[in-house]
């Protein structure tokens, strides 16, 4: 039953868990639910996607700050 729950994709929850991990703020209840509802591979995937988005975001930000040569 729990495996079934875990196998259902829940991308927003995974991203939420990763962002919470980054800032270090997560309600205890949500943290426990993460463990029940998410598989480690989902969290790792979400973390890598978030890192890619962060890199892309930073590149866009610095390109917008630095005037075109």
């Amino acid at each position: 039953m729990r495996e079934q729950e875990k196998s259902s994709m829940n991308p927003l929850r995974a991203v939420g868990a990763v962002l919470a991990a980054f800032t270090g703020i997560r309600r205890g209840k949500d943290s426990k639910e993460d463990l029940q509802k998410l598989k480690p591979v989902q969290i790792i995937l979400a973390a890598l996607i978030c890192a890619a988005v962060l890199i892309a975001g930073l590149i866009i930000l610095v390109k917008s700050i630095v005037p075109a040569q």
Binding site: A17, V18, A20, A21, F22, G24, I25, R26, S31, D34, L35, A47, L48, A51, L54, I55
Partner: peptide, 19 residues
């Protein structure tokens, strides 16, 4: 305090350390 966030923060540091 915050075992889970410690685990996740350690992982975050590991990923960010490459960039």
């Amino acid at each position: 305090f915050g075992y889970h966030s410690m685990v996740y923060a350690t992982s975050s540091i590991a990923i960010l350390s490459f960039m």
